[in-house]
Design a binder for these strands. Sequence first.
DNA 1: CCCGTCGTTCCACATAGCGGAACGCCGTTT
DNA 2: AAACGGCGTTCCGCTATGTGGAACGACGGG
Lengths: 258, 258
Amino acid sequence: MEESASTGTLGKAVAVLDAIARADHPVKFRDLRAQIGQPPGTLHRNLSNLMKEGLVRANPDNSYALGYRLLTFASAAWASNRFREIAEPHLRALHEQTGETVHLGVLEGVEVIYLDKVESRQAVRMHSQIGKASPAYCTGVGKAALSILPGDEMRLRVNSIDYHAFTPATIVSAQDLEAKLDVIAHDGFAFDDEEHEVGIHCAAAPIHSPDKSFVGGISVTAPSYRVSREQLETWIPLVVNAAKAINQDISIQLGPRA
Amino acid sequence: MEESASTGTLGKAVAVLDAIARADHPVKFRDLRAQIGQPPGTLHRNLSNLMKEGLVRANPDNSYALGYRLLTFASAAWASNRFREIAEPHLRALHEQTGETVHLGVLEGVEVIYLDKVESRQAVRMHSQIGKASPAYCTGVGKAALSILPGDEMRLRVNSIDYHAFTPATIVSAQDLEAKLDVIAHDGFAFDDEEHEVGIHCAAAPIHSPDKSFVGGISVTAPSYRVSREQLETWIPLVVNAAKAINQDISIQLGPRA
DNA sequence: CCCGTCGTTCCACATAGCGGAACGCCGTTT
DNA sequence: AAACGGCGTTCCGCTATGTGGAACGACGGG
């Protein structure tokens, strides 16, 4: 439960935000106090400041939730994101071809953050998945993205992961992950064989900006009861081609120097 | 262009975030420097700290954009929001009845932030509108929300608005707005007669938590070339009833004490 | 090749955050 | 009903941390 950074004044504030975000219910003062080790006075001041900025709001029963200003920031971040914009038509095409859910994700540290999603049926919560962070080591997009990092950078991140067996198939050691990533780097694509969630598998391929300052991936996800592993494999060329097309568009539109 | 708060260390950091968010393109260091009056050293440190927290990311050409962590926070904020959750079925029903776009918004200071949206055709950017902030004084939801504030609180906000004529119909003075709000408070519903955008009008009604700690509204929006003002008026009972139903559900589910 | 601009780094200063401790509100107990 | 106790809020002196002027250095244009 120990939180890492808390570097500087801003770090403390973000740690509070993070603690509130992790809980999926409004969170009481004492819970926050327990989760991050800030003394009462300090926590109270941090919350006050965050509220003043609209990043946190208080419910009448002195529980706290994330503020609405975060939505505004995220809206701006999403709408102005070039990568997402460039990738979108390719995601749609891939969805047309496969009929299954297509994801676009970006690697942030050792987590994947989903930037976009195209799915068949008008889902109850189309929006819910966007912005969601998942562990890189047990998702297709995450492994694809990790695989194209320079060796030392990759190893650094692989060793900093806190492994957790979400399913029987989850990779739970740095050695195993690194071996897998070597294979993926060679192949140019990755699978998630129910490593994050039982009954869900996917095929993924990496994308990146020319200088690798941005590293991510795309994937086609499906429930395994409906789509076989073999079927998934037949989609690999489609996924890989879409990823290649996106990489090319990124190079062109963002300038080869980038 | 002058920014208001900047109170405390956190305020300075958020001011930077805000400046980046306002620009819809990645923004250069010098632009930021021009927009917020921070000296180079200070701005540079603020950006560094924000980047360390994942709230800002730098492009290779030293331009800056909002970071992906903001998406994660917003995702959590949205998914765990009770008001949105409670309102959702009513929004859907209202959309079924009218066939037009339905919005849910919350009043934050003198702005409306949109929490949810139900629209007919699978829009190209369903997600784009959510989180968007608009001036309260020229939107249906905003005026409806302002109208149910206690008199002194309402006047306070009305006087702090920086009025701007987006269209010929925009209300541009505190006096006019206050008069309008009195009428709206009496009626229980509000219109936006192309006050924010030419060719777009809407009918709205206020919603709130029992203690008014949360104040917002819902609206049915349509282009005026397709939907007449008269048609809009016939929808008023539907909108008002939906709002009432939401208010009731909020009271019940969040506890009458709240 | 030199010069000017703009971003980065450095450092002494002052401020803003820090957190221990005292306060007071409320719900609970006897 | 009164006293207790837990818990959030406020206060205040201390020091860490952010501040911003100034010097430095990296580009890019002339």
